[in-house]
Design a protein around this nucleic acid. Sequence first.
DNA 1: AAAGTAAGTAAATGTTCATTTACTTATTAA
DNA 2: TTAATAAGTAAATGAACATTTACTTACTTT
Lengths: 198, 198
Amino acid sequence: MRPKNTEKEEAIRSIALQIIAEQGLENLSMQQLAKAANISPRTIYIKYENKEDLLVKLFIDVVLGAYEKAALEGFSEDMAFPEGIRKIWANTFSYFKKNRHAFVLMEYGKSSPLLNKAFRERNIKEGSSFGTVHRFLSQKAKEGIIAEYPQKVYRALLFAPLLDLVHEYFEHRERGRQIITEQQLMACCDTVIKGLQS
Amino acid sequence: MRPKNTEKEEAIRSIALQIIAEQGLENLSMQQLAKAANISPRTIYIKYENKEDLLVKLFIDVVLGAYEKAALEGFSEDMAFPEGIRKIWANTFSYFKKNRHAFVLMEYGKSSPLLNKAFRERNIKEGSSFGTVHRFLSQKAKEGIIAEYPQKVYRALLFAPLLDLVHEYFEHRERGRQIITEQQLMACCDTVIKGLQS
DNA sequence: AAAGTAAGTAAATGTTCATTTACTTATTAA
DNA sequence: TTAATAAGTAAATGAACATTTACTTACTTT
């Protein structure tokens, strides 16, 4: 049996992300993707059932999976509250700085019904994606270190500003202006931490 | 001269938003839109140059314009810091609760390169969209009421969690669970305010 | 009341889409 | 070394796409 060429699979994935980042999810076509990856359209269908399957796998496995792993690198539930949050912020910023294309598909996850649904279904199957962070926050709340809120509220307070600043970072970087520095980002992180601490 | 039928224009806009919210921007087609609005495809082209023109006008005029107006209803630059921020949060929540379709296109504004570009160009033309809020925050920083940060950081801290919670609100509402209440939202708002205050 | 005109329609245009068909190639296991 | 088989290709398929053409309708102005 002839073995799969993993180089081609990798090309499909990275070029798909590139097209999505540059032209938008709404302008990605299978034929264009095949052409850009220098393969036949049929080859994509050997590796993915159809276009939706490709998009969902790109989003869940390549983008979300890799991001979550990177975000939690060196994080542990027994860290102090500010220490743990700062670790995740720093990890996230440094990961996406090197992976802009992944970040754009991540943002589509908020708007596209297809990706939204895939995200929900994954969370039901595998439990909440950030189980470790969930426990970390519950523990700190129980200890009285931070105010008691639903997890959704923690997530909004702690991570929404972070992702917004990553977006801003790219917005500026693409235009040759260098505005958001790691220092500013971490100052913002401390502000969020301060708001939550009792 | 036969006058334009504004009912038809309104139908195009509201049905386009509905299709985008339910099937995604990537699945909106001009023919489907015409059919759903009970008009000929040609009629859309009387009112809009092409598909991109329609999307940009929907995003900028209908969605962003209406939202910004609603968000600033009753807001004034001389309000106290917590009072002003709470007003914008309450306005935003109550506006989007009644306009879910608009919120979805708003979220696409973060990911879609076309809408992103349109947003940037509008801000250059008309000045920052939230000029009033910009001045409000600068003033509070000058008075030493809040820490000094770039406007981008204020925006990330003050509004990103709000939009994230609106997203969560719909996620729950669509599934028959009623989790995020106005009370929880405003508690979250107070946490953000507390973090920023010196 | 009738001429002028923009709004509106139905149907068609050529293009591009996702996906498949019919075939070739490369690799492994016997 | 060759039979078996999955990986891969080039080209085709029919559907759906954005947009236009050729025409009709309805309103205003005179």
